[in-house]
Amino acid sequence: MISQYQESLLLPARMFQSVSMNTTYEDVLEHIESGIMLFDEEGVLVFVNKQMYAFLELARHSLLGCTMTHLLANIQLSRLKRKQVLRAYREMVRKNKPTYEFIDEYGRYWRATLRSGEQMKGSYLFILKEISDYKLIEQTAYQNDSLAMLGKLSASIAHEIRNPLTAIRGFIQLLHPHLHQLGKEEYAKIILAEIDRANDIIHEFLTSSKPSVPQVSMIPVSALLKEVVLLTESEALMKGCQINLHPLQGDMIISGDAKQMKQVVLNMIRNAMEAITERSDDYIGKIEVGARREGAEVRIFISDNGKGMDLCTLDRLFNPFFTTKENGTGLGLSVSDRIIKNHGGCISVSSRVNEGTRFVISLPLIQ
């Protein structure tokens, strides 16, 4: 039996051990990768780790002892962060959803999780974790599935549709003189244009599912851009756009398929034209094209002052079938992305609504 005197001697040791264990737990929570925020049963914030402070972009220990209302009213909290916190609070606390996913202003994916109820004894534990890597894997898997489905679909429809279209086009051309005599020549032009558009769509399906093997050659970047600008200048003028080709410094040569590279740059310039024509206000449309050397790579840029894109559109921009155009197939940028990756490069894009968009194609240079 432990006497009352011995019990009194053990009590400070137990208290010290309890304090030491709490400190250890806090140290562990402080250094985990997820952001932690704990509110007690009265709604008072009792613990925040450094990862959560970093996400909120607030000074250390500036929130302890406050409530959710005080947190949202903090003058140091940016407007965007306040919106994100408020939406997460509404989704998880008001609507009783255990998780909430969102994208921040830097394009990063986050998952917020709420732990509450009896297991937390009235407290609310918010856990925040960045899931950008998981989303990238998920999108890649989805894209691969889409491309596999696209391959099967395009292979089955190509021969079934192209042969009748070729026959129809031939008969329309034979009937063209008769339609001209009847004063219905415009009908023939419309039919031929629509047949050609259908053929173009089929061609895009085939290209995206089974891109041709690159015919590798040395391509001077200056010659590539000059040729593409020359091809698109008249079309741009008809749409009220100006194309400015920036002078290139030095000889920059890449290795690849000239036709495929031309296809990529043409696609981006035409996208820029459409973005300019879709902008409602009265202004002069400008497309800037150029290239610069960055170490062992060349950066080819195509920028415009068109309608721009929001974050949600940017996030899905290179997905097959995704398009914001009324008559688009959603394959142009997807195919362009695959071509550039096959050439050992990458495409990056930045955009602001009503300010414009900038595409940058990075490719290895031949030294």
Rank of each mutant, 00 (worst) to 15 (best):
F322L: 14
A188E: 08
I269N: 05
V221Y: 13
R338P: 04
E227T: 13
Q249N: 15
D310T: 12
I168E: 03
G43K: 03
S62I: 02
E326Q: 15
N199D: 09
I157F: 06
G290R: 08
N267H: 10
V19H: 01
T24N: 14
N144R: 12
H31K: 12
R352D: 11
V44K: 10
Q143P: 06
M37P: 02
G250C: 06
Y134Q: 15
R197V: 00
W110V: 00
L153M: 12
P320V: 13
N244E: 04
A258W: 11
E138P: 05
S18C: 05
Q119R: 13
N244I: 07
S350A: 07
C346S: 09
V93A: 14
L77E: 08
L58I: 01
L266Y: 09
S362Q: 05
M15K: 14
A167L: 13
M15W: 06
G332N: 03
R90C: 01
M149L: 09
S156Y: 07
K81T: 03
E91D: 10
E7R: 12
R338C: 08
L128Q: 14
N305E: 09
L58Q: 00
G240Q: 14
V360P: 00
D315H: 06
V48Y: 03
V48A: 01
R299I: 08
S334I: 06
F171W: 12
I339T: 03
